[in-house]
Nucleic acid binder design. Structure first.
Length: 489
RNA sequence: GGCUCCAUCGUCUAAUGGUUAGGACAGCGGCUUUUCAAGCCGUUAAUAGGGGUUCAAUUCCCCUUGGAGCUACCA
């Protein structure tokens, strides 16, 4: 039997990074087992539907190079398309199928109509709560006979509820957690058809998973407690349930469920901030699972090949975003010059209008940034300078000001003798300046420190050769003369 | 409150009966004899507590404690 897994997001906006990790695990399993990934959108809650969310979701998956094999997708023109033989893949369009299944349950006496009002339910829950009892539907309408129920359904609004067993135990084996058991008497008679006629998640996802022949349901831990209801539906129809795997949650630093209040949770915003897809995926994949051993950097293929559901951790993982920064730095350093240019150039376009200078600057940025926000900050380290330099920071250690001025002037002299090709790289500039130091029998420190401070105006800055390379001769000379002036010469 | 799940350095994790409890991020220290960054090297730091089982428990069982999820006509 070939593996079929599904991604079943709700089109309510962005891709939560926790969902992205779950999606990743689904892809890993499918790719490892040469199976199929299905993308199905769960939009049964029409009130939460966000227009454009489906398209955005597909685009984000595309940006991450996670391309499903079947289901809803987006074409080059941005239009939604569907492929695969289990259409439709938009859950709301399966409304009639869900209703038919619900009617079968009704017929078998495994579901019943409920006419309770919102107000009564609220009141009931209040009473249960204040009595210290668990809040659960009191099965008020379960006592209505099938015939009476059918009559009432013709005249009154209703929902359909599952008629769960009242005694006994249900257990199943989770691929990650092993055997899990629940007592039926603890379970709630879940609503499966809402008063608007639409199925709830529990019925819709379960029936769709069966209809689409899903073999492995890999989803978040928040679904663990409702799995018995899903199993009940499989049992009611005599279907074989899929293998379940409930992945642990991603956590905030305080160990609560990862939330927007405390963290950025949207995949899109990480991408916008300049986290590379490979860094984000490497980071997320290893939050809750790892292939054993000491390796930290993995390609998608390596992860997929090593993936093993039974080795996914059971406990929630605090997302340590400092590690993501580290990973991103690593992947950024791996980029080719062309790729890095494409990455770093956009934010600099309005800041550095001289193309040549901008490209020189970007060449020097590599290795100094871990995300997009760093680009402008680090660029400022190269470009920004105070017009008046504190003269006390220019000399190296206890160097005499006159020696400082001598070295600075010699450097400007050196520039007059240099050819354009000497300015072609930091390395070429370094060779020239170091030759000068050697010729005068000066020290690196007493020459390069003042030169660097003169160029940057700051105690801490990039190296002098990078500064010269980026700034070019004219601006370099201007800045050096400014330093000489502030030393009183 | 009830149900379910979970528990190794601050964080992510490795080690499924026998290890000096390993790696990574962060931290700290050093090197790179110009600073910063990067890089390299080194280093601090953990089996929640209590009972068992066993010749031997991070590992198996129980209890306690702590944490999380669920507890909707949301997914």
């Amino acid at each position: 039997m070939t593996v079929r897994v599904r991604l079943a997001p709700s089109p309510t906006g962005f891709i939560h990074i926790g969902n992205l990790r779950t999606a990743l695990y689904n892809f890993f399993l499918a790719r490892k087992e040469k199976g199929t990934v299905i993308l199905r959108f769960e939009d049964t809650d029409q009130t939460r539907y966000v227009p454009g969310a489906i398209e955005a979701f597909c685009r984000s998956l595309q940006a991450l190079n996670l391309i499903p094999d079947e289901g809803i997708w987006i074409d080059d023109a941005g239009k939604l398309i569907e492929h695969g033989s289990y259409s439709p893949y938009l859950q709301s369009k399966r409304k009639d199928k869900h209703r038919a299944y619900a009617d079968q349950l009704l017929e078998k006496g495994l579901a019943y109509p409920c006419f309770c009002t919102e107000a009564r339910l609220e009141e009931m829950r209040q009473a249960q709560h204040s009595a210290g009892l668990p809040t659960r539907y009191d099965r008020h309408c379960r006592a209505i006979s099938k015939e009476d129920g059918a009559e009432l359904m013709k005249k009154h609004p209703y929902v359909l509820r599952l008629a769960l067993p009242e005694t006994g135990e249900i257990s199943f084996t989770d691929s990650i957690r092993g055997k899990i058991s629940f007592q039926w008497k603890e379970m709630d008679d879940q609503v499966i058809i809402k008063s608007d006629g639409m199925a709830t998640y529990h019925l819709a996802a379960t029936c769709d998973d069966h209809d689409m022949e899903i073999t492995h349901v890999i989803r978040g831990e928040e679904w663990l407690s409702s799995t018995p209801k899903h199993l009940f539906i499989y049992q009611s129809f005599g279907w074989t349930p899929p293998q379940y795997a409930h992945v642990p949650l991603l956590l905030n630093a305080d160990r609560s469920k990862l939330s927007k209040r405390q963290n950025d949770v949207s995949t899109e915003s990480y991408l916008e901030k300049g986290y590379l897809p490979q860094a984000l995926m490497n980071f997320l994949a290893l939050l809750g699972w790892n292939p054993s051993g000491t390796q930290e950097i993995y390609t998608f293929d390596e992860l997929a090949k090593a993936f093993d559901l039974s080795k996914v951790n059971k406990s929630g993982a605090v997302a340590n975003f400092e590690k993501l920064d580290w990973l991103n730095t690593h992947y950024l350093n791996l980029l080719s010059d062309e790729e890095f240019l494409a990455y770093a150039e956009p934010p600099l376009l309005p800041i550095v209008t001289d193309i040549e200078m901008r490209h020189r600057l970007i060449a020097c940025l590599k290795g100094r940034i871990s995300k997009k926000a760093d680009i402008l900050t680090v660029a400022q380290d190269f470009l920004e300078t105070d017009e008046i330099i504190d003269p006390t920071i220019i000399p190296w250690k206890k160097q005499e000001p006159k020696d400082v001025v001598e070295r600075l002037r010699a450097t400007v002299e050196l520039f007059h003798l240099m050819k354009p090709e000497d300015w072609a790289s930091s390395a070429a500039l370094e060779a020239k300046v170091k030759q000068m130091i050697q010729d005068h029998e000066w020290g690196n420190g007493d020459t390069l420190w003042p030169l660097r401070v003169a160029l940057s105006g700051k105690q801490k800055s990039p190296p002098p050769f990078d500064l010269l390379f980026v700034l070019g001769e004219e601006e370099s000379v201007r800045r050096i003369k400014r330093a000489i002036a502030s030393l009183g010469h």
